[in-house]
Design a protein around this nucleic acid. Sequence first.
DNA 1: GTCTATAGGTGGATAGAC
DNA 2: GTCTATCCACCTATAGAC
Lengths: 196, 196
Amino acid sequence: MGADGEGTKDRLRTEARDLYLEEGFAHFSLREVARRAGVSAAAVYRHYDGKEALFAEVCMAGLQLFYTYLVRAMGEPTPRSRLTATATQYLRFATENPRDYRVLFMGEPQELAVGKAAKQGPDPTFQFLIDRIRECMHARILQEGDALEVATIIWAHVHGLVSLRLSGHLSSAGDDGEFARFYERATEHLLSGLAA
Amino acid sequence: MGADGEGTKDRLRTEARDLYLEEGFAHFSLREVARRAGVSAAAVYRHYDGKEALFAEVCMAGLQLFYTYLVRAMGEPTPRSRLTATATQYLRFATENPRDYRVLFMGEPQELAVGKAAKQGPDPTFQFLIDRIRECMHARILQEGDALEVATIIWAHVHGLVSLRLSGHLSSAGDDGEFARFYERATEHLLSGLAA
DNA sequence: GTCTATAGGTGGATAGAC
DNA sequence: GTCTATCCACCTATAGAC
């Protein structure tokens, strides 16, 4: 609880995040983080156990940012609009924070393992989505049924579109604005198929 | 056209592929390939331009293998069954060759760039799928419309399921057999939604 | 075509002085 | 808490002998 607003530990955390966002996991190194923070590589070990612990901090920040997007969907008035807004915010997060999206949802088992330490517990994305779906089922907007299975289908739907886009396989879909409109059409299509 | 069945170049190619399948892109190195092939690292440069060229060979092999899966769908008798078989073979390929799937469809721009050299041209997956969909539209099994847009939706659907599975996010879906059945249900659901 | 030797670079992590 | 110095591992790539 020191009065210090910018201790070395905080500095390392923010520099680590910037480095990852700029260079990706492949070029993420403890030494470079230290360089940017203006300290020696050895100093890092006074604050973190090593490279993995440092990267876990990066993952944590990404996960928290993801929540700030999802939670905006709760500002919508109806169950239906909250569900569609969830999908919209999901795309917004991915578009505006592609590296974060990668590490959270497209990571290799390797990266994922270290990121998982930060997560601890079941995937929170999924629970939020299940809640939105249960809400819609209760309001008879979606057909009553296995909310978990429906949530998985919807998640896979948005993730499929987003991840193919981020990997460059859907560059034919135009710019971000055009893609967003296509994304909306596709999602509306799926939801109408899942309606009663 | 030499009578040699196993020249050093071939040896390097197969060892490179094995190494990638075992260790992934992160630990793929020219030196290790050379070690496994029983030659010095310098010898590799007599046969390939460098690490990138060697990895491009690996990508090529994965792409060709992918085709051998897709083409099996053509053995089905009807447009509808050819389309569903395409989805089934897509999952089979990914399940039986996860590393290949990763490098082809989940790669980072970095890996993708070098793989793209091997691909040259528009994504062949997509054309195969478009053909199956046009076939179904012509047979009135799918609603007539923008085949490209429908193909993108279906591709994103199967890719979303597959890639979340490969990333470990759908481990709750049980073993491969259980997941395959869920995958079939989900796909049937989507197709019925796309029918007239 | 293959080798050894080498140049020149990355990185993680630790020991011990201050 | 931070530093310097160090160790060790790994890598790509090239030069020149054989």
